[in-house]
Amino acid sequence: MNDKSSADTLVVTPPGAEPASQEPVEKNVSTFRLVATLAVAGILAGMLIAMVNEHTKPIIDAYRAEQLRIAVYEVLPGAARYTTFYLVDGELNPTLPDGAKEVEYKRVYVGFNEEGGPVGVAVSRGESGFQDVVMIILGFDPVGGKLTGMKVLESKETPGLGDKIFKDKAFVDQFFAGPELPLVSVKAGSGKGEPNEIDSITGATISSKTVTRIINNAVEEWMPLLQQGIPEDEQP
């Protein structure tokens, strides 16, 4: 951007006045110069972004990790700590193979109590709801076959109706009451008192059913693997 040699070929309009006519001022600007200008500008921009990224990335990552931590403890009420296990070649592994990218692996968060015994497993899963993908993290106890909690991470469900899946305390509380799996969504008040019933929200049946469907699918996906044995605590 410091190419001053050709600056004299530019006409600088006096301040405040719009140019009377838009005459082409430069007749022959070499292609090299066009490319070079953009390249230099691009390099400068990239450096600037890299610098700021260096500064903000740790903060962003820390925030994300904190949010995840809060969510995992929320859906696994009895957990004192948890360990992330990645699904590597059909087995749960607390570490990734060398050079592997974290985002490419499915994972579960296994919660342990003070004594190091497993209390439950948390997984996150997204499926399409009424508007867009609903992202949920859920905790369940693979041994007892019960749900321990559910938190909606992302949702664009209709404000005032579908968003009750995370704003309506009565609805959310049902998932923390230890319902048996798999869940069944029933119309509010019409349940038979079975231990796996979830009363859906009046007027937001689709959103309610999305939540139970996601939970059931997630459990169905992970249960066979977890029933072979929940991984041991890494740090006793």
């Binding site: 600056a7 430069e26 110069r33 200008t37 953009l38």
Partner: peptide, 8 residues
């Protein structure tokens, strides 16, 4: 503005 060619 002096350094930016019109074309780009």
């Amino acid at each position: 503005k002096r350094f930016i060619p019109r074309e780009v």
